[in-house]
Design a protein around this nucleic acid. Structure first.
Lengths: 319, 319
DNA sequence: ATAAATAATGAGTATTTGCTCATTGCCGGA
DNA sequence: TCCGGCAATGAGCAAATACTCATTATTTAT
């Protein structure tokens, strides 16, 4: 006489049946229980089993699906508290538009909070593009503070400083830093920072709940150099010292360690807020930013990231 | 200035994100709401949207998955009230073991009901194999009635009548039909059926809540012929009259219409219970049974089916 | 064969999800 | 600019699902 199939086999079969009825056919557990002739609790267990045994595979038919996976991997690898990966537009893979929109969305989200928030902002092209994406919003309960000086070397407003841009769109108390981005000397920086108004702003920056910063590359196209904040000699020195990127002017090497001396002695920006007390989100996409991104992520100079799919993939390859 | 993406695009993206977080990452809707910065209800709507928009695809990694699909198609095509498809064992594609086990399971399920059930049983090799798979069970509240006579032409017990087999395993009130399967004449059948005890059994059969029957093929291997219930002449006549299958000895043509005259005038079996009041489940697998199965399904001679994957596939091909 | 260990079950309950409905806000047309 | 229509939202509630725990089968080892 042929034996009944052993229990475990039957159980998995039933789990598969239950999983199918639940996820594919859309039955509820009561119906499944009736169909399979078991109690509702058992049906629930079978459905649960079908997942834990990996019988049920869920797939997301949307570009976002891949982004979510990449984001999850990056979050784990770098112990990030926040990640958002936007799909790379195949027709314009170098566009920062997606990242800018996502950043605008995140900034708006913070500004919609009811409790007062202190938001610190860095500088840069990507961040500027993000601010341009923002919709007008009343955020009077919040404070927005710039981490970087707003005065260009020629005395004009630093073009990629975003504090004035955001102030135009968002009704919030904003705190610019009426300073040059890089002081002429370490001594000058101390004097400037000693001013009571600047002191107040620096204090505010330290207390930021959330911070959005761009990451600048240190190469012939370095924004610090292109925008005239440092000379080509200073750029070369930084490169010789191993600098691969900068945040708010603070240059760091491939390990994310701040370069000692050189322009870092004169950077007038507020220090990047502590990752213990603030969510510091890097906004950066593109191959040029990879070394800087890797460095700042490894040393946790930032604990949040908004980037695009392609950059995320490249970050996950090899380091 | 670059425009924000239009709302619907963002919404689908968010739906995709929500779907991923829910189904892949296993977050609950509260967490998703926080992650996406929306209310719980909105998160629910997004998850729901991700399904209705077909972003989420669920797949069942188990042989049962295919069976469930086939079963669903058969259920729809033939308006069946019950279908079970068992996987075809690739190493023994002609085995009826799987179908027998499944049938045993279904019979046991009915016998486990608390309310009294009247179960009618046909005859045949598959059904016999199924009964052999059953575990002992106390079902004293139920009645099990045979639809077919239990006396072979030679006066012995008809081997493939299952009522005595099930009575050995199951503690239930059983009602055999102490008749030949096919009477010697229409007149004899009337006399036999007129007996009070038989009357009672026939009445019981009419009241059956659930019925399990095999389907016999009408070909040179026809069980009716092989088991000696009909002669080769009678078989040929049936074939000539268009018979393609039989249930409990009642032969029918390719449309499921009962053959008029011939052996059907003398079949001593109870009529197959009404599909209005009874679930009549056909137990049949294998290519030989296809014509009979097709016929009985199309005319709803049965409203339930237990078969195997391969037979189900063949049923769905072409008819 | 018996007892210990393990797994399965059902009841009861907490949590999560889905739905309805009233309200809000946004968009297009007069 | 104002108004009607439509989509989106949140509150509240009903339904469905997940979990816990005590009890009952079942298996395993002696």
């Amino acid at each position: 006489m042929v034996q009944r199939q052993e229990t475990s086999g039957n159980r998995l079969d039933d789990a598969a049946r239950a999983g199918w009825l639940y996820y594919v056919a859309g039955n509820n557990q009561e119906q499944i229980a009736q169909t399979l002739g078991v109690s509702r609790q058992t049906a629930q267990r079978l459905v649960s089993l079908s997942i834990s045994e990996g019988l049920i595979r869920v797939r997301l038919d949307h570009p976002i699906g891949r982004c979510m996976e990449l984001g999850e991997k990056l979050r784990q690898r770098y112990a990030l508290d926040f990640v958002e990966i936007v799909p790379t537009d195949p027709t314009a893979p170098d566009s920062i538009n997606g990242v800018a929109i996502a950043t605008a969305g995140q900034i708006e989200r913070w500004l919609k909070h009811d409790e007062p928030v202190i938001m610190a902002l860095g500088t840069g092209r990507t961040l500027k593009a993000a601010i341009e994406q923002m919709s007008p919003i009343d955020a009077s309960q919040h404070k927005i503070v710039s981490l970087t000086g707003s005065i260009a070397p020629d005395g004009a407003a630093a073009y990629y400083n975003v504090i004035f841009d955001i102030a135009q769109t968002v009704k919030a108390r904003s705190f610019p830093m009426p300073l040059p981005v890089i002081a002429s000397s370490s001594r000058e920086r101390e004097l400037l920072h000693a001013q009571p108004m600047i002191q107040e702003t620096l204090t505010l920056a330290r207390q930021a709940n959330v911070t959005f910063v761009g990451i600048g590359e240190i190469d012939p196209d370095a924004p610090l150099y292109v925008d005239g904040f440092i000379t080509s000699d200073e750029l070369r020195s930084l490169q010789k010292a191993g600098a691969v990127g900068e945040i708010c002017g603070w240059s760091f090497d491939a390990d994310g360690k701040l370069i000692e001396g050189l322009t870092n002695d004169r950077v007038a920006s507020a220090p990047v807020p502590s990752r213990e007390t603030s969510l510091v989100v890097a906004i950066a996409a593109g191959n040029k930013k990879l070394p800087g991104l890797r460095a700042s992520l490894s040393r946790r100079l930032v604990n949040g990231l908004i980037t695009d799919e392609r950059t995320a993939e490249n970050l996950l390859n090899t380091p």
